[in-house]
């Protein structure tokens, strides 16, 4: 089956792929936060440029990043229309009582550029590491255990549940069911989702039993061997410096 795996390209060889996962998470988080708070379009564009550069270094295929960015773009595109019409400021175009303001255009483009660079960075971060390694890195970074376990089980069982859904769907199609947006179709779909939830509940119980029988007492423990090497510092330091400089260069220069 074809799973939309976030870590499908995690086995490519690139400096970003080989970057220590903990350092990667910290570095990328710093950059994302830095880029999200940039206050001018010029800076935001520089940020987007840097993100694109890292994307090129990471050698991730376009097919991985572009469709996902498209979703973000679609999601935010209402802003591009609404903000120029609603934000007060210098009017640059007018049609009857509808006005478009410069501030509005600026503001909405700023939001869009920041979002695109943040998402690009996040995609590179997740896309260049096997997801289980990302979880372990978070574990090493002392992210609370409950959160780690939630991530872990989501990652593990999302596929099982997708398979289950697919099987149910096939079973229904083989009995001649076609989804139509009418009352009957929706009620069948609702039943199916209900079934899925019950099945998941039963499964959760069985999984819990099997965890107990392996000595589970409430906290997840695992063995992780990550080692920070010189090259990791060599990547992390400049990136973090850039992230900081974007906000503080006027103090330095």
């Amino acid at each position: 089956m074809n799973y939309p795996e976030i870590d499908r390209y995690a086995s490519i060889d690139s400096p970003i792929h080989n970057f220590d996962p903990r350092a990667k998470i910290i570095t990328f988080m710093v950059m994302i936060f830095s880029f999200v708070f940039l206050d001018s379009i010029t800076k935001a564009l520089v940020g987007l440029g840097i993100a694109s550069l890292i994307y090129i270094i990471a050698k991730l295929p376009k097919a991985f990043v572009i469709p996902r960015l498209k979703v973000v773009f679609l999601f935010l595109s209402p802003l591009l229309i609404i903000m120029p019409l609603t934000v007060d400021g210098q009017v640059i175009a007018q049609y009857h009582s509808i006005t478009i303001t410069l501030e509005g255009v600026r503001y909405s483009s700023l939001v869009m550029i920041r979002a695109l660079s943040a998402v690009t960075l996040a995609l590179i971060m997740l896309g260049t590491t096997r997801f289980d390694i990302t979880i372990k890195a978070l574990y090493m970074l002392k992210v609370p255990g409950t959160l780690i376990q939630m991530l872990m089980f989501t990652y593990r069982y999302i596929f099982v549940i997708m398979d289950e859904f697919q099987r149910m769907w096939k079973a229904m199609e083989s009995k001649g069911f076609k989804l139509k947006a009418n009352r009957y179709g929706l009620s069948v779909l609702g039943n199916m989702i209900g079934m899925l939830i019950i099945k998941s509940y039963d499964r959760a119980q069985r999984v819990y039993h099997s965890m107990i029988s392996k000595g589970y007492t409430g906290n997840p423990r695992t063995i992780v061997n990550f080692e920070l090497r010189t090259k990791d510092y060599a990547i992390a330091l400049p990136m973090i410096l850039i992230a900081l400089l974007m906000h503080t260069y006027h103090l330095v220069l």
């Binding site: 997801f131 289980d132 979880i135 372990k136 872990m152 089980f153 990652y155 593990r156 069982y157 099982v160 499964r203 069985r206 999984v207 039993h209 099997s210 965890m211 029988s213 695992t222």
Partner: peptide, 13 residues
């Protein structure tokens, strides 16, 4: 104990 459904027992990443 090895249970019936392996998906119930392989719960780690």
């Amino acid at each position: 104990i090895v249970f019936q459904d392996p998906d119930d027992q392989l719960f780690m990443p």
